[in-house]
Design a protein around this nucleic acid. Structure first.
Length: 711
DNA sequence: CATCACGCTGTTTTT
DNA sequence: CAGCGTGATG
């Protein structure tokens, strides 16, 4: 039973226009908090109400979660059939299509997807083939190499061009980079692997080269909507054009000042090129903000007014009142953590719930110190962004077994699982894989590798496990349970903190239970994984504080928002990185963060002395202090450590001096800002100490530089 | 193959 | 600092 919606009552004129225009191309330029999501939700509802088949509506979003939430909302407020609308990410759609048409691209339909960690691993394995001259200047590390290759393919420029523009320090390695690019391409083809970038590129290629596929998809998706269009790149724009070129029922929604994904080749100019591709486009601007108070908007407008590129709009609200955002120099990082904790507690005392508050930051590690203090003070939180559940070693190792069966050419996974066998390392694993490939031995015959000795009898066990797993293709849950029996002893051997890791792996059992085929299960996990272990917590609805990277906070809002430590200088050699474009992206990042706040916005930064933790010139690509410096008092309130609201409430005197090793003994309980609670296992001469952390295993720490504390 | 000492060097965000 | 590569040793 569907509900009637009175659109004119719930939407403003611009939103209404966007919702009611259901034919032809539409570009919606929507400022932060202007009801962009609301507009998309109602438009989905409207289309279904008009009798459009839900399955023929395609909603492309940035994360799978965003799509699901929108469809759920549409279903709740109108017709439950909205849940059948096709929603997902570009990568998700691309993968589904490519799977069906893999052979047209010269791939087998058993190809597997590599995540970033896999990509880096392959690059790493290829490096010896580059034959680098010994003792030459430093070659970029593998994560940088992956960044360069990925960005070059996303921008569709040659590696040289990209390096000239953004990696001047590595220009001398251009020949090697080119060689690496080719090796990497060949490797992927040879092993039936695609990385994230390939999904998008091959998808476009398939559409361009194959009229039949293009027509079929265009017919299947008669109405297309794209959210966060400013974060798409030129290739994705081509895909949109191919899909909608025939019927032209395409709506893209975006905000040029929220473009913060240039590292993926995204460019907000895509938005302005849209009218060139669809000249009959209707352009709708949403400028009224429904989220924040006017003082918050004045602040964000003032920040963007200084941008070197001019953006399309100025936000206003009809909400009156509200307080001016505050900027606080907390001098040091630990003081910043104390300040936020104290402020949070005060806010709770005023009757607010923890779920109304969020702390946002640039990089996942920026919250380490705060997390420590929150834990000390017993304030519960969930964190989004940064650490990826799927990328932790134990999860990857575990799933590699399943991947190796599904795609027996997947050398990355085979390497992983073979190296887990006792006395098989880098060399032997490669020899075994090569043998399997040349003899065509099926996966469960690894135990019969002729080179084996008595020492690697573990191969026999692996063989048996693989053999039973192969008979569980239609029973993912059974396969996971079976593999668990084999893998748990390995895990126990390998990690000191196996109970936590075991628990995490066990969470895969119910997830696998939702799939009919093993392959579907592992594909989904790689491509659209739970964003963090917090996501898997069934009690998400509990009243907790949110910590999040700005990137992960996109599209969300909270009454109170704290922003901490936004790119102050920390890296001594950073002068090389001063880059006007990067500064502009940092500015937009601050804009995105600030516009998440509905009522109150507080920005903290740990000043220069707190930021440059071991001296040297500060990195100068921007940061809270540089963006707010000189803003007028009407727009921002400046507070320092001298202001009463900060100093008076300090809960205990700060002692920032490091713990001397003589005070620590094996067995002492300690706490570290990054790694959390742990126990001292060993003292090492000088100022080093080995700690066994509850969540991160064994780490060797240099005291004097880390704030390791006795707990 | 596994472990350890030593030297070097510097961003980060995510599908 | 801490992660990573290198080269030497068990």
């Amino acid at each position: 039973m569907s509900n009637r919606i009175d659109y004119e009552k719930v939407l403003n004129p611009a939103q209404l226009d966007a919702v009611m225009t259901t034919q032809g191309p539409v570009l919606v330029i929507a400022g932060a908090g202007s009801g962009k999501t609301r507009t998309l939700v109602y438009r989905v509802a409207r289309l279904v109400e008009l009798g459009v088949e839900p399955e023929s509506v395609l909603l492309l979003t940035f994360t799978r979660r965003a799509a699901q939430e929108m469809l759920e909302r549409a279903a709740t407020l109108s017709d439950p059939r909205c849940r059948f609308v096709s929603g997902g990410t570009f990568h998700g759609i691309a993968f589904r299509v490519l799977r069906r048409h893999a052979e047209k691209l010269g791939f087998s339909n058993s190809f597997t997807i590599m995540d970033r960690a896999d990509m880096e691993e392959v690059i790493h394995a290829l490096l010896p083939e580059l034959q680098m001259p010994k003792g030459s200047a430093r070659f970029p590390k593998r994560s940088t190499l992956a960044n360069i290759l990925s960005k070059a393919s996303n921008l569709e420029v040659t590696v040289e061009t990209l390096m000239e523009e953004e990696y001047g320090q590595f220009l001398e390695f251009c020949p090697q980079m080119n060689r690496l690019l080719h090796l990497y391409r060949d490797y992927k083809r040879g092993h039936q692997l695609m990385d994230y970038d390939d999904l998008i590129i091959y998808f476009r290629g398939l559409l361009a080269a194959n009229e039949e596929v293009r027509r079929e998809l265009s017919q299947q998706y008669g109405h297309i909507m794209v959210d966060e269009y400013q974060d798409t790149n030129a290739i994705q724009a081509d895909i949109v054009h191919q899909l909608a070129g025939a019927h032209r029922n395409i709506m893209v929604v975006g905000d040029d000042s929220q473009s913060i994904y240039s590292f993926r080749g995204a460019n907000y100019r895509n938005m302005f090129e849209f009218p060139e591709r669809f000249p009959e486009v209707k352009i709708i601007k949403l400028e009224e903000n429904y989220r924040s108070t006017q003082p918050i908007l004045d602040f964000t407008n003032a920040i963007m007014a200084r941008a070197s590129e001019k953006y399309t709009k100025c936000l206003y609200t009809r909400k009156s009142g509200g307080e001016t955002p505050a900027v606080i120099d907390t001098r040091t990082e630990p003081e910043q953590a104390l300040f936020v904790c104290r402020h949070v507690k005060e806010t709770l005392a005023q009757g607010r719930a923890l779920r109304d508050l969020a702390v946002l930051f640039r990089a996942a590690y920026h919250s380490f110190e705060l997390e420590l203090e929150l834990t000390r003070q017993g304030i519960p939180y969930v964190k989004y962004g940064g650490f990826k559940f799927m990328e932790s070693a134990h999860i990857k190792d575990f799933l590699a077994h399943l991947r190796a069966i599904v795609n027996r050419d997947d050398a990355v996974s085979w390497g992983r699982i073979l190296r887990l066998v006792k006395n098989v390392g880098h060399g032997k694993s490669q020899a075994i894989f090569k043998w399997m490939k040349t003899t065509g031995a099926p996966p469960d015959q690894v135990g019969h590798w002729p080179g084996q000795t008595q020492k690697d009898s573990g191969l026999k066990t692996l063989s048996q496990v693989i053999s039973s797993l192969m008979s569980h293709e239609t029973d993912p849950k059974g396969a996971v349970e079976l593999l668990l029996e084999y893998y748990l002893p390995v895990l126990r051997d390998q990690f000191d903190d196996y109970p936590r890791r075991q628990r995490e792996i066990e969470q895969l059992i119910p997830m696998a239970g939702r799939y009919r085929r093993l392959r579907g299960f592992i594909d989904d996990l790689v491509l659209e994984p739970p964003t963090s272990s917090a996501d898997m917590d069934p009690d998400r609805k509990t009243d907790v504080l949110t910590l999040s990277t700005v990137h992960s906070a996109k599209g969300l809002e909270w009454p109170f928002v704290y922003i901490i430590w936004l790119m102050e200088g920390r890296f001594p050699q950073a002068r090389a990185y001063v880059n006007p474009q990067a500064v502009e992206e940092e500015r937009r990042l601050l804009y995105v963060a600030s516009t998440r706040a509905k009522e109150r916005l507080i920005l903290c930064y740990p000043g220069r002395e707190g930021a440059a933790s071991w001296g040297g010139p500060a990195w100068n690509n921007g940061g809270v202090s540089s963006f707010v410096a000189g803003l007028p008092r009407e727009v921002v309130r400046y507070e320092t450590e001298a202001s009463p609201s900060f100093t008076s409430g300090r809960e205990r005197p700060l002692d920032l001096s490091p713990t001397p090793p003589s005070e620590l003994r094996p067995g002492d309980r300690v706490s570290h800002p990054a790694f959390g609670p742990g126990v001292v296992s060993k003292l090492i001469e000088g100022n080093k100490v080995e700690v066994l952390f509850r969540n991160f295993g064994r780490k060797l720490l240099h005291l004097g530089y880390t704030s390791l504390e006795k707990a």
